[in-house]
Amino acid sequence: MRRRHVIVGIHGLANKPPADEKTRWWKAAIAEGLARNEGRADPEFAFEFVYWADLRYDAPMSEDDNREPYRPYDGSGPLPGGEKAPSTTAKDVLAPVYAGIDAVEEATGVTVVDDLILEHRFDDLWHYHAEQGFARQVRARLAERLRAFRDHRILLVAHSMGSVIAYDVLRQLEREDPSLRVEHLVTAGSPLDLAKVKLKFEAEHGPLRVPNNVSAWTNLADGDDVVAIMGALEVDYGPSDTGVSVDDRRVVNAYHRPNGEPNPHKSYGYLRTPEFSRIAVTYAQTMPEAVRPTEPR
């Protein structure tokens, strides 16, 4: 029997709008990319969203406080691809500087710079590393969703801090549930290259590599997205035991706030890039909106 497809998403840092709204917006951004980049008008695909902001925040972000709602990209036709990225970006300037800091922090295990970045810029990630109870709850939500769709062909899309959670969960599932597989992992705007994050991974999971339960891993990074400061992960994350390597792709995240300001880290911009659409189109081949998990969540 042909296995059905499902796209599973997990969000990143900071408080979010209500779960149902955030889910609709992620799906709308994916659908916009499929329509504009792949010519799939009104695409239908199974989508599941792992929402964890409620574990850190007492109430969802209100409409008045949300400066970055989902907004369709202006105009028509395909969105700009990575080949249209500027030749020099913020990452090209900052990455060499951070590379030196990263090397010292990894060699010494003293992560003063990363600690400051995490505590003051990536507060949720700081708490994820510091509070074991919070980390267990977040991981459990993603693990349960993946287990519920284990009989599907899974595209797992992890944005920002969500990629840290996804990596931890996949390496954990290698040990606890080795028959579960994710067909394609996509990380977007990922901080997996921060020395503090890599040291935490190594302490818990051993040498950095592609998880063995992943058949493909694509990493998307905009050149001006300082969260993904190094851009490429393949240098630090070796191939899986079966030879699967990270495929690093530079993309153009064309998201703009309603006031016109760009945000090259925004999830919606990554989800409608041509590079992501080329992956996601495979998972829009079936009509699985009515498909539900085979196991209770």
Rank of each mutant, 00 (worst) to 15 (best):
S245E: 13
L55P: 00
I101D: 04
I117R: 02
M161W: 10
A53Y: 03
A232I: 09
S179H: 07
L192E: 11
F134H: 03
R250P: 03
A216I: 01
A221H: 01
N263W: 03
A95P: 00
V214L: 13
S245Q: 13
K27G: 14
R71S: 09
Y167M: 11
Y237N: 03
A148F: 05
P72S: 05
A95R: 02
W52C: 02
V227W: 00
L55E: 04
R24G: 12
Y57I: 08
L185V: 11
S245W: 06
V50F: 06
E295D: 11
I229D: 01
E48R: 13
E119N: 13
P96T: 10
G223K: 04
E295V: 12
M230E: 14
P72E: 03
A143I: 09
A85V: 07
E48Q: 10
P211N: 01
F49Q: 12
R4D: 14
A95F: 03
R150L: 01
Q137E: 06
N253V: 03
D42L: 08
W217K: 01
A14F: 15
V8K: 00
L199A: 03
V214G: 07
V97C: 07
E105C: 05
S87G: 09
D225Q: 02
A232L: 12
T23R: 15
A29I: 14
G189M: 09
I7V: 15
K27I: 14
R150C: 08
E131Y: 03
V157Y: 02
K27S: 15
V246M: 10
R36F: 11
P293W: 02
V112C: 03
A29G: 06
D193S: 15
Y73D: 10
V8A: 05
S277R: 00
F149T: 00
P86G: 04
H152I: 04
G81A: 09
F201L: 05
Q285E: 13
G109P: 02
V281Y: 00
Y57W: 10
D42H: 14
Y268G: 04
Y237T: 04
R3I: 09
E144I: 00
P258N: 05
L220D: 00
E183K: 13
P60A: 06
A95G: 05
A130W: 00
D123I: 08
P293H: 07
A95C: 06
L173H: 02
A232C: 12
D74E: 11
G12L: 08
L94V: 14
D222V: 01
R181S: 11
V182A: 12
D248S: 11
D123R: 11
E32I: 06
D248E: 07
P288E: 14
A31D: 14
N213Y: 04
E144S: 07
L173S: 01
P262E: 10
E275H: 02
D74W: 02
D225C: 05
H256V: 12
G223E: 07
H184M: 06
G82K: 01
L146E: 02
W217P: 00
D168A: 06
K22L: 15
D193K: 09
E202C: 03
K198C: 07
K16R: 15
F49V: 06
H127E: 07
G12C: 11
I10A: 08
R278C: 05
M230G: 12
G33Y: 13
P18T: 11
P17R: 10
V235E: 14
Q172S: 12
